[in-house]
Write a protein that binds this DNA or RNA. Structure first.
Length: 451
RNA sequence: GUGGCUAUAGCUCAGUUGGUUAGAGCGCCAGAUUGUGGAUCUGGAAGUCAAGGGUUCGAGUCCCUUUAGCCACCCCA
C-alpha cells in the first residue's frame, strides 16, 4: 500500500521528458551518418588548406543585430546574462566570421581560409526539415579577390559531394554583377533586392508571377520586368549562354565584368577537371541574401531536384564592414547538412547501422574477461573498432544483439577455443565461420571485413 | 508572426450516433533440455487516449485553452 502510494506520488511529480520545440535528439542510427558527413566535409576542407576555427555560441547583441535586417532580428534568440549584458545566440556562421575576422585578421593575415562546422539557432516557426537548432558547415576564403578563390569553392563543393557518394549533381553558378549590370542599364539598381527576391521564386511560382512581382515591388515597367525574367531564363551550354549574355549587358561595365568573371571561372573549373555536366551557368541563381556581390552558386541533386540546394554560397565584397574599416572581400559556401541527409535518406544512401564498431566479441566464458579485453585491445591497435559484450550471458542472446546492432564480424572464443589456442571468426552477414589459430585472428577478421 | 489540419502503447494505426476493466500489428523483455543471431511458437511488460478545463448520468469520442507536429504564407539554411 505504502509502496504504491509512493510510486504514484513520484509518478505525478515526474517531469515529462520532451524536446523543446524546434530542437531534436539524434539517435545513433541518425548520428552515425551525420558524423560521417561531417568527417568527410572536414577532410575535404582541410585538403584545400581551410583551417578549423570556432567562435562562441553567444555574442554581444549589437554584434549580431543589424546585419540581417528586421527579419533575422526577430528570429534571434536573445536575453540578458547574469551581468546584465544583452546577448544573442548566433543565427549563422557568417556574422561571427565577420566579427572574428575584424578582430583577428591582423594576426592571421590574408588570405585567410577557414571552415567552421557548428550549430546555429533561429527562433522562427518550425516546418518539416527546418528546426530552431541546426548545423552549418561553412568554408570561406577571406581577403582574396581573384577568381581563383571562386573556382576553388566550386572545386571544394564538387569534391565534397563526390566524397559523400554523389555522382549526379549540378553546381549552378552565376554572378550578381550580370544582373546588377542589367538593372543598371534600365535604371533599377536601387531595387536590386526586390528583384532578386522575386527571381529566387522563379522555379516555385513561374515566370508570369515573377514578372508581376517585379513590377509591384520594384516598380519596374512591364517591358523591363519581362526583359529581366527573359534574361534569367536563358539556357543551353555554358558557352552559348555566355554568348547570349554579352550583348544584353553591353551597356554596363559591371555587367561585362560579371560575364568575364563567369567565363574565367567556368573555364578554370573545367580545366581543373570538373566534368561539364556538373557545372552549369544558370542566370536565375540569385540567392536572396543582399550581401552577395559577385559569384553565387547553388547545388542541386539530379536525382532529387525538388529538395532544393544542398550546398550554396557566393562572393561578398566587404564581409566585416560593420566592425572594421578594413576592406575584407571573401567567398565561401555552406553545406546544408540536414537537407543533404534528408536527400540521402530518400535516395537510400544511408546504411542502417547502430554501431560504429565492426567487430563484436561475445563475453562467452565468464572466467576469461581479461582474455577478451586483451583480444579486443589487440584488434583495436590494428585500427579496428571492437566491442566486447558487457555481460556473460547466453551466447545466442549476445549474437542477437550483435546482429541487431549491425556488427559485421564476431570473434568467438569459449572454453574449447581457449584450450586449443584458437578463435572462431564468424561473418555475421553470411553466417559463415572459420576457426583459426590465435595469431591469425587479426588477418582473418580483416579478410572478412574487406569483403 | 498569420491561416489551416492533426495528437490513442517505443513505432504504425483500429476504436462503430458519446455507454462496462482501451485493442491489433511491429518492436521490446523472458522462455521453447543449459556453446551460436535473423525464422517459428508461447508468455510478459508497457497507454491517467498530448496537458488542463468544460458539457453530460456517463467523454478516447463533443466544446474551449495550452503544448507539440504537419501543410501553406512570410522568410531563409
Amino acid at each position: 500500500m505504502d509502496d504504491e502510494a509512493d510510486g504514484n506520488e513520484r509518478n505525478d511529480e515526474r517531469i515529462k521528458p520532451r524536446t523543446l520545440k524546434g530542437f531534436r535528439d539524434f539517435l545513433p542510427e541518425a548520428m552515425i551518418p551525420r558524423e560521417r558527413i561531417m568527417d568527410i566535409a572536414r577532410r575535404v576542407f582541410r585538403s584545400y588548406g581551410f583551417s578549423p576555427i570556432d567562435t562562441p555560441a553567444l555574442e554581444y547583441l549589437d554584434v549580431l543585430l543589424g546585419k540581417g535586417g528586421a527579419e533575422t532580428d526577430k528570429q534571434l534568440y536573445r536575453f540578458q546574462d547574469h551581468g546584465g549584458r544583452d546577448v544573442g545566440m548566433r543565427f549563422d556562421l557568417t556574422v561571427p566570421l565577420a566579427r572574428f575576422a575584424a578582430q583577428h585578421i591582423g594576426t592571421l593575415g590574408t588570405p585567410f581560409k577557414r571552415y567552421h562546422i557548428a550549430c546555429v539557432w533561429r527562433g522562427e516557426n518550425t516546418q518539416r526539415g527546418r528546426y530552431r537548432e541546426f548545423m552549418q558547415c561553412d568554408f570561406d576564403t577571406i581577403g582574396a579577390k581573384n577568381v581563383a578563390a571562386d573556382a576553388e569553392v566550386v572545386l571544394v563543393v564538387h569534391d565534397l559531394l563526390r566524397a559523400i557518394g554523389f555522382e549526379r549533381f549540378t553546381i549552378r553558378v552565376n554572378n550578381r554583377l550580370v544582373l546588377s549590370g542589367l538593372l543598371e542599364s534600365i535604371g533599377l539598381q536601387s531595387h536590386a533586392t526586390d528583384v532578386l527576391r522575386a527571381l529566387d521564386k522563379l522555379a516555385k511560382i513561374g515566370p508570369e508571377r515573377v514578372v508581376e512581382e517585379i513590377q509591384q515591388t520594384a516598380g519596374a515597367s512591364a517591358k523591363d520586368a519581362a526583359c529581366i525574367v527573359e534574361m534569367v531564363q536563358l539556357s543551353g551550354p555554358n558557352d552559348a549562354v555566355l554568348a547570349q549574355l554579352r550583348p544584353l549587358v553591353s551597356g554596363s561595365e559591371r555587367g561585362k565584368e560579371g560575364v568575364d568573371r563567369l567565363s574565367e571561372l567556368l573555364s578554370a573549373v573545367s580545366t581543373a577537371g570538373v566534368p561539364a555536366e556538373r557545372v552549369r551557368l544558370d542566370v536565375s541563381i540569385a540567392r536572396g541574401l543582399d550581401y552577395y556581390t559577385g559569384t553565387v552558386l547553388e547545388t542541386t541533386l539530379d536525382d532529387l531536384p525538388t529538395i532544393g540546394s544542398v550546398c550554396s554560397g557566393g562572393r561578398y565584397d566587404n564581409l566585416a564592414e560593420l566592425y572594421t574599416n578594413q576592406q575584407l572581400p571573401g567567398i565561401g559556401a555552406s553545406l546544408g547538412l540536414d537537407r543533404l541527409l534528408a536527400a540521402m535518406e530518400e535516395l537510400g544512401m544511408i546504411e542502417k547501422t547502430r554501431t560504429p564498431a565492426q567487430v563484436f566479441i561475445p563475453y562467452f566464458d565468464a572466467s576469461r574477461l581479461g582474455d577478451y579485453l586483451h583480444l579486443a585491445a589487440e584488434l583495436r591497435s590494428a585500427g579496428l573498432a571492437v566491442e566486447v559484450y558487457p555481460e556473460p550471458t547466453k551466447l545466442g542472446k549476445q549474437l542477437q544483439y550483435a546482429d541487431r546492432k549491425g556488427f559485421r564480424v564476431a570473434v568467438i572464443a569459449g572454453e574449447r577455443e581457449f584450450a586449443a589456442g584458437e578463435c572462431q571468426i564468424k561473418n555475421l552477414t553470411t553466417t559463415e565461420s572459420v576457426t583459426v589459430p590465435r595469431d591469425a585472428v587479426l588477418a582473418e577478421v580483416q579478410r572478412v571485413l574487406a569483403k
